[in-house]
Design a binder for these strands. Structure first.
Lengths: 354, 354
DNA sequence: ATCAGATTTGCACACGTGTGCAATGCTTGC
DNA sequence: GCAAGCATTGCACACGTGTGCAAATCTGAT
């Protein structure tokens, strides 16, 4: 402001002062100056496989340590156009299954030298499109969606920009996204078979009011299996996907029906159902057999010992990671459409097979 | 690159081809060309409060939509030196308390327009210093540490670079970090008083083998309170901080001592202890009273109904956020040292006061 | 029609880094 | 001693964006 009559040094001085005031990060230029080399040498020192003499490398590292230099990844990504960021979209992070999923994923990403940009979709009233857009602004390497259902338009935009979209237990029919889902249909069938083998004749299925593909697949597949056996299942499907809903389902269902077998599409619902059923005076598994889905840690606790269908967490994160690491080859890149196997974990909430 | 004899168009052609090959992101230059304006106009259109005519703004927005333009935050942060990233360090993300903490924090950050860079400290054998260093490379606005104990040297480096470090339920005595901890001492005292009021005379305290400040504070403060009442507490302190350790503690402790009151420094330990105690034939709360700490969701479940000391999650994330948003003023910036109040949640695992 | 003032626009530089290219220095073999 | 070859180094440009400054355009009042 008014640089007209100020002596030459002033602006640079002013600049220097400004720098001290707002900009405190050490740059490679600072390091270069202290080490008495060019900026290129500094850059090369921190670039694996670049050509630097041992002497220079040493001096640079020394100077860097003295000054506390950290390479600016923003600038580096800007030029190499390859940030090692991975965007992760998830909601209900405190629910045991989601929490474990995120724990494993974030750990695996770090192990592979990637960073995890976490976006909580809990308050995304207008869908997760805005979230994905904001992730895109970071030029991420890939986006993992564990919650919500992205419209295929935004997925196409990601793909057009060379960003893989990986849907975990989600579905987007004709979009160019990798999808990795556990075998809901198979799992539901296994649960039905187990209950039938236990001799159950009056069977219910408990879901929440959520209309997620996972919920629907499990519910429908189970109901179909029961009908195949000539029985008509009693369905509960309202409320949130929580422990409390499980309790309500038990109270509601058991008041009007004398069920002897129930499949809860989620362990959390299952645990609530167990508590609700006990409160209603049912003995488990003598009066009533219960099967869950997911195998969250709490299902193994002594007060529950819930028989359930397990999703292999290892397989899941493994598949996600290999999808991320697969290279993109333009639009027609091969997409993964994996369906991961599940297995029944026998505990104590289902009568032995007759 | 030999611009001497090559016709003018050639380089730009070659460049264009290169762009198509490796670089698929749309830039502001592309938008400007399509809209028939300068690149500055594009930049200003996406900068709130900048001076652009309605006409230009409209044309730019139209072009941006057609091309699918997203501003490159890396480049933006590079110049403004203000990324809205916040680094979060945490381990054991699947443990209920940590999961809830992360859920709330990530949600709050997003609501304030900040992004969450999540680093899982689970596999940080050599401490979390390397993690913090790598966060620093992203020029984050602040770092929230929920796990591990950063040496003060790295904290000082963060502060020197204008990056706030916020320790949640952690401690770093003389370092320049904001620390936000819940009132472990007060909570432990409340737990002790409650057990004493219930008439307990043979009292135990259960912790894990972890040497975290939180664990130690709670254990010591509780033991001191018990001793003040003229009793000598029985201490258990080994294993990981899990449900299973709680069971083992119950089996180990109850085999040799006839306890009538126990304080578990973590709800997870407490729930395990309850199941272990029941298995050992103790009736709760008739024979044995149990108090936990944290108030995780599972503590309210019907099979447990654990009386516990609650940390207010709202207060916690609120304090973290206000610390992040407080401006940095060089080295001598005022630091927060908050101790958040706790409260006893009465459920069903402690005998009524006599 | 003219001119002052306000608004809009484009130029050019800055941010911190990676890297091709040419120049420099060093080694080696004769 | 000299030339050839090779490792090392510095220069300069590129990445995509924000913004001060001056030029250009528009507005409105005389």
């Amino acid at each position: 402001m008014g640089p007209d009559k100020i002596p030459i040094e002033a602006p640079s001085d002013r600049e220097a002062h400004l720098k001290r005031a707002t900009r405190n990060f050490v740059t490679s230029e600072d390091v270069a100056r202290l080490a008495g080399v060019s900026r290129s040498a500094v850059s090369r020192t921190f670039t694996p496989g670049a050509s630097v003499s041992a002497d220079v490398r040493h001096r640079v590292q020394e100077a860097a340590k003295t000054l506390g230099y950290r390479v600016n990844r923003l600038a580096r990504s800007l030029i190499s156009d390859q940030s090692n960021l991975v965007g992760v979209v998830g909601a209900n992070l405190s629910l045991p299954f989601m929490a474990r999923q995120l724990d494993e994923l974030s750990r695996a990403l770090l192990r592979r030298g990637m960073q995890c940009l976490l976006l909580n979709a809990a308050e995304a009233e207008q869908g997760i499109t805005p979230l994905i857009e904001s992730i895109l602004e970071f030029r991420v390497r890939a986006i993992v969606v564990m919650s919500g259902s992205p419209p295929s338009s935004i997925i196409d935009e990601c793909v057009a920009n060379g960003v893989r979209v990986i849907l975990v237990n989600r579905q987007a029919d004709d979009a160019e996204a990798d999808t990795i889902i556990s075998d809901d249909l198979g799992g539901a069938r296994i649960a039905a078979e187990r209950l039938l083998r236990a001799g159950c004749r009056c069977i219910g299925v408990v879901g929440s009011g959520a209309r997620t593909p996972t919920q629907i697949r499990r519910r429908v597949a189970f109901a179909d299996s029961i009908r195949d056996a000539g029985l008509e299942p009693i369905v509960w499907a309202s409320g949130e996907t929580t422990y409390e809903t499980g309790i309500e389902a038990a109270k509601g269902l058991l008041a009007s029906h004398d069920l002897d077998g129930v499949f809860c599409v989620t362990d959390l619902l299952g645990l609530g159902f167990l508590d609700g059923a006990r409160e209603a005076g049912r003995r488990i598994p003598e009066d009533l057999s219960v099967v869950g889905f997911d195998d969250i840690p709490q299902s193994a606790w002594a007060s529950y010992r819930l028989t359930t269908v397990r999703q292999s967490m290892n397989d899941l994160t493994g598949s996600v990671l290999s999808a991320i690491e697969r290279e993109m080859h333009g639009k027609g890149t091969a997409l993964a459409h994996e369906i991961l196997p599940v297995e029944l974990v026998e505990r104590a909430t289902v009568r032995p097979a007759t």
